[in-house]
Design a binder for these strands. Structure first.
Lengths: 105, 105
DNA sequence: ACAACGGTTCGATATTTGTCGAACTGTCAT
DNA sequence: ATGACAGTTCGACAAATATCGAACCGTTGT
């Protein structure tokens, strides 16, 4: 279980709306998604708001988002590049991501 | 704890986006919301898809939706009228409900 | 080579949610 | 008035999630 392994990403055709909604329904996960709204990030810089967050916990948050088809998480040297699967999400659930990211609260 | 009591409904200013997303992230609850998309329903006719569902369970589903500000649940004689808080939701989280209801899956 | 770094996985434990019967209460019809 | 009805609440138990340390493994710099 190395850190740079290629992780499985679901086809968006296989994720349900409730899967996505659930993934977004946690404040910490939603924050990550918001952080990614402006473009991909090295994983290390994501939870900058949450510096004390143990890495196993953070990794788990990423896993939930990834398995719900919300983010992409690809090895990048010894780090990982995390990004929103924006186009795919828009195609599968039109308007959803926009409304979530657009929410002021 | 009578059946026709007036239940507390939160001000939408007090519900968070994650509260709403969580409420919608369960298939049974999402189905109720979809059932309500075309207008208010007597509670008895909501889970018509789920006739075997115990009433305590159903009542609990409604409670989660109500506490998240998604539905209104008001006494109506000895029954209850359930409806979407559509306008308020639209104002608080523009586009969210539309994208959720619009999703084909 | 070797050690530090970034990140995943496993396993254990804590916390949150879900499920459902039972008890209860107001309303309606008889 | 009495009984059937609709639906909430409580309480107990089951199941799903979250949290986090520890072990582990490529990569990168030295």
């Amino acid at each position: 279980m190395p850190a740079n392994q290629v992780l499985p990403h679901p086809d968006l055709a296989d994720v349900t709306l409730t899967d996505v909604l659930f993934a977004l329904s946690d404040p910490a996960r939603l924050q990550i998604v918001r952080d990614l709204a402006d473009g991909p990030l090295e994983m290390a810089q994501c939870g900058a708001t949450n510096p004390a967050l143990p890495k196993s916990t953070k990794s788990h948050l990423m896993k939930v988002l990834r398995e719900a088809g919300v983010i992409r998480n690809e090895p990048r040297g010894r780090e990982r590049l995390v990004s929103l699967r924006r186009e795919e999400l828009d195609a599968a659930f039109p308007g959803l991501l926009d409304s979530v990211l657009g929410a002021t609260r």
